[in-house]
Write a protein that binds this DNA or RNA. Structure first.
Length: 285
DNA sequence: AAGACGACCAACCGCCGGTGA
DNA sequence: ATCACCGGCGGTTGGTCGTCT
């Protein structure tokens, strides 16, 4: 049983602050300084709880607050600090003069987090994800340029603990179409490895044209700089995630992959998701 | 024109740690 | 050692506004 909320008493106002309330708070703090939040509202003539006053002051009324859009430098700083500190918003805010923890938290959740996801970066671990195009790259290289040993699909099953099984099946399905040799892929799989009817339905809406479309939009001969910096408004993984109606839970962070458990021919293709995507696009084209 | 939808963000909520009685 | 109080923190909510259909 937690403590009762500090402002559940009758008569205390909640919700948005009016300009008059703001002015009362500013006047009081300019005259007496901040602190003693519990008693401040009464002294300042405000029908608010102390907590509400403190929040209003620290997040909005403080004179040293910098308003307006975050600069590119600030954004980069937030990303770097978040990779070190995690969701320690107050610690991050302490290193960004004029910005509040609440503002940074909001900005992270509404802008940066989404941008990282679009770039194929896990916003929690700050690492690239092992995702569908990683798999497609692995499969493409292994199956479309086959040697007898690479035709053995048993090695692919080693990926199964790492990736949603349906996702693995989808990758196989995609590439079986691309390789125009679906029989190869169907061989050697135990019955339980085949996708559920429900998932097959999903697959039907996610056809090879989509991947071809994506491959056309990738640079044909990307240099390393381009590979490492996917365009902000285009991310092939996001397209695929959207098309296939997948969720984040269908993926595992690349850092959690046990590379040693994989066939060497796969691990050499893993370096970055972007590299894999470009390789897959080249192979398909 | 209007309703649906999503993005944004101020504000709230519950919890935690520090402190003093 | 225990309890109450206080300030602070991170997660979540809900109102507002712009865009889309």
């Amino acid at each position: 049983m937690g403590r009762a909320p500090c402002c559940d008493k009758d008569g205390l106002k909640k919700g948005p602050w009016t300009p008059e309330e703001d002015q009362k708070l500013i006047d009081y703090i300019q005259k007496h300084g901040q602190g003693s939040w519990r008693t401040l509202p009464k002294k300042a003539g405000l029908a608010r709880c102390g907590k509400s006053c403190r929040l209003r002051w620290t997040n909005y009324l403080r004179p040293d607050i910098k308003r307006g859009r975050f600069s590119f430098e600030e954004e980069e700083t937030i990303i770097q600090l978040h990779s070190l500190l995690g969701n320690k918003w107050s610690a991050i805010a302490a290193r960004l003069p004029g910005r509040t923890d609440n503002e940074i938290k909001n900005y992270w959740n509404t802008h940066i987090r989404k941008r990282l996801l679009r770039m194929g970066i896990d916003p929690v671990t700050h690492t690239h994800r092992l995702d569908l195009l990683d798999l497609s790259a692995l499969l493409t290289s292994s199956l479309c340029n086959p040697t007898p040993s690479q035709f053995d699909l048993s090695g692919l099953l080693g990926l199964e603990p790492l990736v949603n099984r349906d996702l693995l099946m989808m990758a196989q399905n995609l590439l079986s179409s691309q390789c125009q040799n679906p029989n190869i892929l169907g061989q050697g799989l135990p019955e339980q490895q085949h996708p559920t009817p429900q998932f097959q339905e999903q697959l039907s809406s996610f056809q090879v044209q989509q991947l071809q479309h994506i491959s056309q939009r990738l640079p044909t001969c990307p240099d390393e700089a381009q590979l490492m910096q996917p365009s902000a408004d285009f991310n092939p993984w996001q397209d695929i995630i959207t098309q296939a109606n997948l969720s984040q839970n269908d993926f595992v962070p690349a850092t959690s992959v046990n590379y040693e458990s994989l066939d060497p021919s796969f691990t050499q293709l893993i370096p970055t998701p972007t590299m894999c995507a470009a390789q897959a696009a080249r192979d398909i084209a």
